[in-house]
């Protein structure tokens, strides 16, 4: 049987492979015999071990020798860790500040994109064109938005949220529209045979089968949002991780600058897996989560 999910979720995004802890449905890899048998230690220990090796190489100046780098260009992990510990209270409050921009902007932007996709799916002929045009929002360099948004919304949280919203809107609109429109014909015929109206078809069929695509877009948007918020702060802010990052680069205080990057990365991973958890709760029927 062809699942709806397989059809609607076919646009890209971090999905199948990036669920290291989950035994998925039997995968297609007979050419490797029993390779699909996933073991918990293998899926968890290997990345952990790899990361440890990476950190060790870095700490022992392996990368510095390889690329002829100096400590002021690339600080070693222990220096970064020390910088994080020394500035923990400030980093914490800045993380909350930046985090609120990320979450607020990402949710607002994704919601707007979803609404746009839903509206476009009702008038597909005109809607398709509008979505294509919206996709071009992705081509706007974030940095160009920063001064404009500063003009419009001031230098508070709102301007960065606006930047993040604009950046996330298009991805959601494109992905959700594709999910809403790529329904297999027999399902539509079925709804048609019940004389279901457009609204009913939307609520009972299209929206549900678009959910995997929506979550895929949400995952992509999480990482975009972090970049957007930090770049936004880079140009218009006196607080937040992005502000601190640009400030410390100017002061050539690389360990603290790198702490911002590390914290942003950790934040991103947490948010990514939070979305993944939400996805599992919201669409338990989705093929990617099935255990047989």
């Amino acid at each position: 049987m062809k699942d709806l999910a397989a059809v609607s979720g076919q646009t890209g995004g971090p999905e199948s492979s990036l669920q290291p802890l989950e035994p998925a449905a039997p995968k297609a890899d007979i050419h490797r015999g029993q390779a699909s048998r996933r073991k918990f230690p293998a899926t968890f220990c290997l990345p952990f071990f790899f990361g440890l090796m990476f950190l060790l190489t870095w700490q022992l100046e392996g990368f510095h020798r390889l690329f002829r780098l100096e400590h002021y260009q690339l600080p070693i992990p222990s220096a970064i860790a020390a910088a994080i510990l020394d500035n923990a209270p400030m980093l914490w409050s800045y993380s909350l500040y930046t985090g609120s921009e990320i979450l607020g902007g990402c949710l607002a932007g994704s919601l707007l994109g979803l609404i746009a996709a839903a509206a476009a799916s009702f008038v597909p002929r005109a809607g398709r064109g509008a979505i294509t045009l919206m996709a071009s929002l992705n081509a706007i360099p974030i940095v160009a938005l920063a001064p404009v948004m500063n003009n419009w919304f001031g230098d508070g949280v709102a301007s960065k949220m606006a930047i993040v919203s604009v950046m996330t809107m298009a991805t959601m609109a494109v992905s959700a529209f594709k999910g809403l429109r790529s329904i297999e014909p027999p399902y539509l015929e079925l709804m048609s045979s019940y004389a279901a109206g457009k609204l009913q078809t939307f609520a009972k069929l299209r929206f549900r089968s678009a959910l995997p695509a929506v979550f895929t877009a949400l995952k992509i948007n999480m990482s975009t949002s972090i970049i957007g918020a930090i770049v936004g702060e880079f140009f218009i802010s006196s607080r937040g991780l992005g502000f601190l990052l640009s400030d410390q680069i100017k002061l050539a205080n690389m360990p603290l600058a790198w702490s911002c990057i590390v914290i942003a990365a950790v934040m991103g991973i947490i948010l990514y897996y939070a979305v993944q958890l939400a996805e599992r709760l919201a669409i338990p029927w989705h093929a990617a989560h099935r255990r047989r």
């Binding site: 709806l4 027999p186 079925l190 045979s193 549900r208 029927w285």
Partner: peptide, 14 residues
């Protein structure tokens, strides 16, 4: 006034 059954079950998986 009519019901339809297709070759594939066409069930909603959710």
């Amino acid at each position: 006034k009519f019901g339809i059954v297709f070759q594939n079950p066409t069930l909603f998986e959710w």
